[in-house]
Lab assay of single mutants.
Amino acid sequence: MEVRTIKVFTTVDNINLHTQVVDMSMTYGQQFGPTYLDGADVTKIKPHNSHEGKTFYVLPNDDTLRVEAFEYYHTTDPSFLGRYMSALNHTKKWKYPQVNGLTSIKWADNNCYLATALLTLQQIELKFNPPALQDAYYRARAGEAANFCALILAYCNKTVGELGDVRETMSYLFQHANLDSCKRVLNVVCKTCGQQQTTLKGVEAVMYMGTLSYEQFKKGVQIPCTCGKQATKYLVQQESPFVMMSAPPAQYELKHGTFTCASEYTGNYQCGHYKHITSKETLYCIDGALLTKSSEYKGPITDVFYKENSYTTTIK
């Protein structure tokens, strides 16, 4: 009895394709271990004539594949690729409408935090270190965002349907971005203890939790000093293409032309909904596939993004 075979390709990165001759009487799992086709788990399936010449994702289970996976995804987590594939199996079914010149995501599976993050990423200057993220990001900007969303979920250790947080998501993504040249110098002034300067680099240099107003941050924000008295913390120097200011959701007025974009969060910790506000020729609110415009805006804002380049204080 002759062994019926077909020729397929296996890959971990969709760049390096490895030619395989597979036995049609055995499952993919018996031949390769966990195997995925377009995100779908085909591990328990036997090869079919229609699979001839198709590319299958496999887990990096030998040295060659491990090197290829690390170079593309910059992670050695053995569960990463499987999590990416199972997320992709959902995100490829989502709709990605162009809204006001940006790629958004039609609401499904509690994905409003991903839509808000995706919209924000198209408006701030950011370059990702893992080629996987950078490639998928370019495709997302062009309207094909399924891979990018699935990668975000995998890097953030999230599953489809789980509630997510924009600030946490951005923080994970910033860790995989090139923020080497970003720098922030802060000064804390206390009447009792004097003053202390701190220099922050990388992710810490672009994120701040405690106030939404970048102007206020430049002037000074009140913080408790270690001595128990009130101290003032203010920005001395900022070198970065953008800054992200966050605070627990509270009524906040966004003035046209003073910011790049913002995240609105309605609801409580267990259950809520994100919308995205962007400042173009007027203010726009993007909620999944829905767009509304207004000249002014007041609502429960939790993150505001500002364009920056270089700032030095005039406070002496």
Rank of each mutant, 00 (worst) to 15 (best):
L118H: 02
P34V: 12
K293Q: 15
L283D: 01
Y28L: 07
Q196V: 10
G288V: 04
V99P: 06
F70M: 15
N178R: 09
T19N: 09
F80A: 04
V160A: 08
Y214R: 05
Q251K: 10
L173T: 10
E71F: 04
F174K: 00
T302C: 08
K298A: 14
K298M: 09
G288N: 01
N178C: 06
I277F: 07
L119E: 00
Y172A: 11
T91I: 04
N187A: 12
A177R: 02
G194D: 02
M170K: 01
T312K: 10
T19Q: 10
L119W: 06
R167Y: 01
V188I: 14
K307Q: 11
P97E: 06
L126V: 14
L119V: 05
A154I: 05
G299T: 05
I286T: 01
P300Q: 10
G267Y: 15
L173H: 00
L186H: 05
P34Q: 14
F148G: 03
I105E: 03
K7A: 15
G39N: 04
N147C: 10
Y297G: 01
F56S: 05
E68L: 08
C227D: 01
L126A: 01
P78I: 09
Y214L: 12
Y208N: 04
L290C: 08
M245V: 04
Y306W: 10
F174D: 02
L153Q: 04
N111I: 00
Y155M: 00
Y73K: 07
E52L: 09
T116L: 06
T120I: 14
C112G: 00
T302R: 02
E144K: 10
K158W: 03
G299E: 03
V243Q: 02
E264L: 05
K229S: 14
A145M: 00
T226W: 07
L118T: 07
M244C: 04
T35Y: 00
L59D: 14
K127M: 10
E68H: 04
C190W: 05
R139Y: 09
T43G: 13
Q270I: 15
K106M: 02
K44C: 15
A136S: 09
Y28V: 05
L283T: 05
T232M: 14
Y269G: 15
R4D: 14
H90P: 05
L200I: 08
K293I: 06
K255I: 13
S279P: 01
T278S: 13
A108N: 04
C193K: 03
H176S: 03
Q222T: 12
S104F: 15
K44A: 15
S310L: 15
D109V: 00
G228I: 04
V58Q: 03
L179V: 09
F70C: 14
A140E: 06
D41Y: 07
M244Y: 01
Q238N: 02
K54Q: 11
K183F: 10
L119I: 08
Y284W: 13
M85P: 00
S263H: 14
Q122R: 04
E296L: 09
I301L: 01
C271Q: 12
K183I: 06
G299I: 06
S171F: 15
G53H: 11
W94L: 00
E125D: 14
K218T: 04
L59A: 14
G29E: 13
C156Q: 08
V243E: 01
Y73D: 04
F9Q: 12
K280T: 07
G143A: 05
L37T: 09
K54V: 09
K7V: 14
T27N: 14
N111Q: 05
L17I: 14
A262R: 02
Q98R: 14
P249Y: 07
N129T: 08
A145R: 02
C261Y: 01
K191M: 12
S279I: 00
K307M: 11
R141M: 13
I45K: 14
L151M: 05
A140N: 00
K93V: 05
G164A: 07
D23T: 14
K46R: 12
C112M: 05
Y274H: 05
G164Y: 02
N111W: 05
Y84V: 09
Y84F: 11
A177L: 05
F128K: 06
A145H: 01
E253S: 13
S171C: 15
L88M: 02
L121Q: 09
I277M: 00
N129K: 14
Q197D: 05
T19R: 11
I6M: 13
L114D: 02
A247M: 02
V166I: 03
M85I: 09
V304A: 01
F217I: 14
P34Y: 11
L235C: 01
S86P: 05
Y311I: 06
P300I: 14
C271M: 15
K201V: 11
C227L: 03
Y137V: 02
K93N: 12
T226Q: 13
A108Q: 14
Q197C: 03
G267K: 15
G161F: 04
Y214S: 06
H74K: 13
T292V: 09
K255R: 12
F148S: 03
K54D: 10
Q134E: 11
P47D: 05
E68W: 10
A132W: 00
V42P: 09
D63Q: 08
H276C: 01
K275M: 01
D62C: 12
L118N: 09
S104Q: 11
V221Q: 03
L173K: 10
P241K: 10
C182R: 03
M244W: 03
T19P: 14
C225T: 03
F9K: 14
N61Q: 14
N268A: 08
G33Y: 05
C193V: 00
L173M: 14
P131G: 00
A250I: 08
A146K: 05
D303M: 05
K183A: 05
D41M: 10
F259Q: 01
T43Q: 11
Y155T: 08
K233I: 12
I301W: 01
D303K: 02
G161N: 06
N268E: 06
E264P: 02
L283W: 05
G143N: 03
N100M: 10
N110I: 02
K127R: 12
C112F: 01
M85W: 12
L17Q: 13
T103Q: 01
D135Y: 08
V236Y: 06
K201I: 04
V12C: 09
T55E: 08
V8E: 04
W107T: 06
T312M: 12
N111V: 01
V22G: 07
A87W: 09
Q197M: 12
P241V: 02
T211D: 05
Y28M: 02
N16Q: 11
L59Y: 15
A117E: 01
N110Q: 01
C190V: 02
A108R: 04
L37P: 03
H18D: 10
L119Y: 01
T258Q: 09
S25G: 15
S279G: 03
M170Q: 00
T302L: 04
Q134A: 09
Q134K: 09
T199A: 09
E253G: 12
S104P: 05
A117S: 07
T312G: 09
K293H: 15
L81Y: 00
T11N: 10
K183N: 07
A140C: 13
Y72A: 13
Q216G: 06
I315E: 15
V42A: 09
E308D: 03
F148W: 06
G164N: 02
F56H: 04
N110E: 05
T159N: 13
T120G: 05
Y311Q: 10
T192E: 08
I152W: 01
Q30T: 12
N129S: 07
R184W: 13
S310C: 13
N147Y: 05
K275V: 10
L179H: 05
Q230A: 11
I152T: 09
A146R: 04
P130I: 06
